[in-house]
Simulated scan of single mutants.
Amino acid sequence: MQSVALLLIGIQLVYAGKHSLQYFYTATSGLPNFPQFVSVGLVDEQPFTYYDSNIRRETPRQDWMAKSEGDDYWERQTQILTGTEQSFKNNINVVKERFNQTGGVHILQEMYGCEWDDQTGETDGFRQEGYDGEDFLSLDLKDKRWISPVQQGFPSAQKLNNYRANLEGNKHYFSTVCIEWLKKYLEYGKSSLQKTVSPQVSLLQKDPSSPVTCHATGFYPSGVTITWMKNGQEHHEDVDLGELLPNEDGTFQRTSTIRVTPDEWKKNRFSCVVEHQGKTVTEKKIRTNKETSVPIAIIVGAVTAVTAVILLVVIGVAGFMVYRKKKGFKPVKPSDDSSSQRSTNTLISSGSGSSTSS
């Protein structure tokens, strides 16, 4: 389970900076009691839609989304994702065959979406697929071509690169349609997406000989900087920065761990400095299991345990965490209908259009 432990032009938004719309698709094989397909949509890294192969219905994950779209929207998205689910179930079997695999646990993941800077107007799009934690396919929007770093992905890349209309369609989707829907969702959720919640910071340690973990949690938005200080100077040696992880309530958490001997910690002044939205929190005192209601071992192991923690809300994102460092990609074809907020998925096996999704 290593891979389990991504309209309304002219709206005057009152919040500034870079915004993102991302969709994460995760297909699994060989995992009992786990959905075979999961889709999660995120706006500014906040989950707002969810679908899996057990419930088989697209559902809102934010009150502002539930209030903004009616039954027709959710029915349309459910039909779209039902088709996408079948495509992914087929695709993961095709990829397994290419790798000469039969049994075992396997994960096929896709992340696509767009970014928009409301200050500069700059936009960007991305579509990536990974298999078992490794790159599989990616779309180079600048050169309008598919790329695969592994031989097993060459057939899909070659077939897709022969569909010039498909490539032009992708370019249009990511530069126009995706951005329009990102702006629309930002307007829907502006009261929630504008909020700022400061992090709670703790220094945690299992025992005196264990590494010390600086744990920042409960903050929103997601941008945070964690720095270790030693005797008033920044310290980078033997420091490991953890992944940014979502909490169930839409906030985020992140850890930074430092490895020092008990004697070194005693003889020097170490502290953890967390910066978020222009505010700084400094923590110097190590908390023990007796001082916190949350078991330290669980917090320190949050990266590997995240799927269990947020299974019902952002399971697709959790599944993508390990793979995200690599950046793979999946062949897709956008809809010709500019009112569709998702793009069309294409089968890895044939390169032909199969379903439309927002």
Rank of each mutant, 00 (worst) to 15 (best):
K327W: 11
I147P: 12
F136Q: 04
P262M: 06
T196V: 14
P199K: 02
N247S: 07
E75C: 09
Q158V: 15
D263A: 12
K18D: 14
T49H: 09
S191P: 05
Y173E: 04
D140T: 00
K285H: 11
Y73G: 03
D249V: 01
D337Q: 01
S354T: 11
E291I: 03
I315Y: 15
V313S: 14
T227V: 12
H106N: 03
V303K: 08
A157N: 01
L186R: 04
C114Y: 02
K144Y: 09
D63Y: 09
T344I: 09
G328S: 03
V105R: 08
G130D: 04
V197A: 11
R127F: 13
C178E: 01
N247G: 05
V239T: 04
S352Q: 13
Q86D: 15
G316V: 01
Q152V: 07
K279S: 09
Q128G: 15
D140H: 01
T227A: 14
Q86I: 12
Q205T: 02
A16Q: 15
T26K: 13
P35L: 00
E234T: 11
K279G: 10
F154N: 10
K284F: 14
I80W: 15
W265T: 02
L31R: 05
N289K: 03
T59Y: 08
I315V: 12
P211I: 00
L108A: 04
D135V: 13
T261L: 03
I147N: 13
I348H: 05
S202Y: 15
F174E: 02
V239I: 07
F99Q: 02
S352C: 11
N289Q: 09
